[in-house]
Amino acid sequence: MLSLGVLGTAKNTGKTTTLNALLKCLSGKSIAITSIGFDGEDLDHITGLPKPKVLIEEGSFAVTSEEAAKHSTARLHLLRRFDIRTALGSICLYRVRQAGTVILIGPHSSEDLLTVKQTLEKDMVEVFLIDGAINRIVPFQHSDFVVLAVGASRSTNLDFLLTETRIIVKMLRLPIGGKDRKLVEGLVSLEKLSSLRGERILVESPMHLLLTEDFVRLEQLLNDLDVAVMRKPELLCVTVNPCYPERRMEGYALARIDLSELARRIERELDVPCLNVMEEEERLCRIVVEKIDKQG
């Protein structure tokens, strides 16, 4: 089984849209799906804007909470109950008996996601799709692949978006290291990094570095260090979402800026495929399917 996560840099960067596209791309395969947050609700919990629904086909698997399962239109058959609780009920594994929309509330910690992943290995699942939540990244340390969703909802400043994407891509490209390095467990703060200048260190994953607010400083510090990671997901591509909720007096409205230039620069400068899912779904499919077929 291969796992594939969609992580975003903020709310509304297009994670679920990407996820839906992936579901379509991989429709021939045996898929399990979950979210480390909350997916498939009608309206965004903060902006009140409509959200994309998650459509799931018959025969697929869904990992979601009991309460969420009740509100899904897909007919779900309970297979297994995990000892994982959320604010909205325990997490369970379901088989889809009849296609429909599904609300996803899955494991929200790395440890729980790993538990679910290990359980699914034993089932007949080929691809395990994991939707992200807000800007959360840490649970994806256990994913085999990731798609990075960036968008105007994070910022409408293109330079900022490019810099941020560059640093994330850079972290995801840190080499896998061995035990010959100095091990730094847990969260790696900038202070810690600066105290380790000049050393050869091993951190748990790129995610453990990316939790700082100051990406530029992180990039600078990394110039003075030899850092490797214990585990990491492989980045398949970057998606860009030009739509963003704009604050209005009475709430939010959907606004849009042109991100095609950003996409071109990400491809050219960072050497990673970058696409707008709404317009380039086929390209996304090619990239993902090719990779999965090769690995599988």
Binding site: A10, K11, G37, I46, T47, H108, S109, S110, A133, I134, N135, R136, I137, V138, P139, E185, G186, L187, V188, E204, M207, H208, L211, P245, R247, Y252
Partner: peptide
């Protein structure tokens, strides 16, 4: 808006810190 990212990052930090 924006506070959600902060709250989510806090959870991520707790997660990374084990």
């Amino acid at each position: 808006y924006g506070a959600a990212e902060l709250l989510a990052r806090f959870i991520d930090m707790l997660d990374a810190a084990g």
